[in-house]
């Protein structure tokens, strides 16, 4: 009889490296790092089969602090590397770490394509609405009017919503989390890891040096219950300190509204049930902004389809079944002649 060996369950600490973490003290990245290490431990991830890939920026230093395989690449191009890694070895669990500059500015095109192709990787976009590593210039998600070294009179750029972009690109898994919400974030990331295909997770991350408290309006613990809503598939979208606010679909205006149960004849039955497979509602949920609306967190959209890497592997497998890999025969295919 085989001896039973206990496989040691890894803890979040087992996913730490011996490298000194070099983010600014108080940076939201520390919390996210912890959240990811918790996720890996909770989901029983195998360090040797996990790869973290990043581009350039504060967030992209991430792979150095996770004791799996890691590749810190070049600015904006992490999706290309991640795609190559996943195509080369589909057994690897590939995570991509990027930011609002890396992923949506210099790498916006690659982000579009990795999402539409549906490569089976997890993408974590740390959104801090600023360029940190280059010392504080505005980013594609910065709010208009933001004063920065490159916009001394205020930014005149229209900002981009990362989740709306992802949905528009054809992403089949879109979720949101907050750096310090370490109760919810690992749950959301575990869902992302579980999803076959490209999973896109926007994480609101506070840059304490260049854009401190930019998300304060909805991330403060005291008011969070009224400014955030954590959606779950099949559950009514009810929120608020008193658990009486909810999201209601106004068919006349074709949009979501915040209503209060018990006011204006609204009952619990009127509150919308979250259907994470409904792309139309997903767009509406992503567009809700503070202070008029709660900011939606959790898995907003999840509607899986065959991943790109799976389809590619299937074609290779089929070719291997149908044709013999005979190199000499390949060179002799077509017209040949013999010289005696």
């Amino acid at each position: 009889m085989n001896k039973q060996v206990d496989i040691k369950k890894l803890s979040p600490k087992d996913f730490e490296t011996d490298q000194e973490v070099r983010w600014c003290p108080g940076c939201g990245d520390y919390a996210i790092l912890k959240g990811v290490q918790m996720t890996l431990a909770n989901t029983g991830a195998s360090p040797e089969n996990t790869v973290f890939v990043s581009g350039i920026g504060c967030s992209s230093r991430f792979p150095y602090y996770i004791s799996t395989y890691g590749f810190h690449t070049i600015h904006g191009r992490a999706p290309g590397f991640a795609t190559g890694i996943k195509l080369a070895n589909p057994d690897l669990d590939v995570w991509l770490v990027t930011g609002d500059g890396d992923g949506l500015s210099i790498g916006g095109n690659h982000m579009l394509h990795v999402l539409r192709r549906n490569v089976d990787i997890q993408i974590m976009l740390f959104n801090n609405e600023i360029y940190g590593l280059t010392k504080g210039q505005y980013s594609p998600t910065s709010q208009p009017g933001l004063i920065t070294p490159s916009t001394p009179m205020g930014s005149v750029d229209a900002p981009l919503s990362p989740c709306v972009f992802a949905l528009g690109a054809g992403a089949r898994f879109v979720a949101r989390g907050i750096d310090t919400s370490l109760k919810e974030l690992p749950v959301t990331l575990a869902r992302a890891k579980d999803h076959k295909g490209a999973s896109f997770v926007e994480i609101f991350q506070n840059c304490i040096v260049y854009n401190d408290d930019v998300f304060g309006e909805f991330t403060q613990k005291k008011t969070a219950k009224d400014t955030q809503i954590h959606v779950k598939h099949g559950e009514k979208m009810i929120f608020g300190k008193d658990v009486i606010k909810g999201l209601w679909f106004n068919a006349e205006k074709f949009g979501l509204e915040v209503v209060v149960i018990g006011e204006n004849g609204i009952t619990e039955d009127d509150i919308l049930v979250h259907d994470e497979t409904n792309r139309h509602i997903a767009f509406m949920l992503c567009e809700l902004e503070a202070p008029d609306y709660p900011v939606v967190c959790g898995v907003i959209y999840c509607n899986p389809a065959e991943s790109y890497d799976k389809a590619v592997q299937d074609q290779v497998a089929q070719a291997k079944r149908d044709k013999k890999a005979d190199f000499n025969a390949l060179l002799r295919r077509g017209r040949t002649w013999t010289v005696e």
Partner: peptide
């Protein structure tokens, strides 16, 4: 980049 990623992965 995909080619370099593939080389990294073997």
């Amino acid at each position: 980049c995909s080619a370099i990623g593939a080389s990294f992965a073997g």
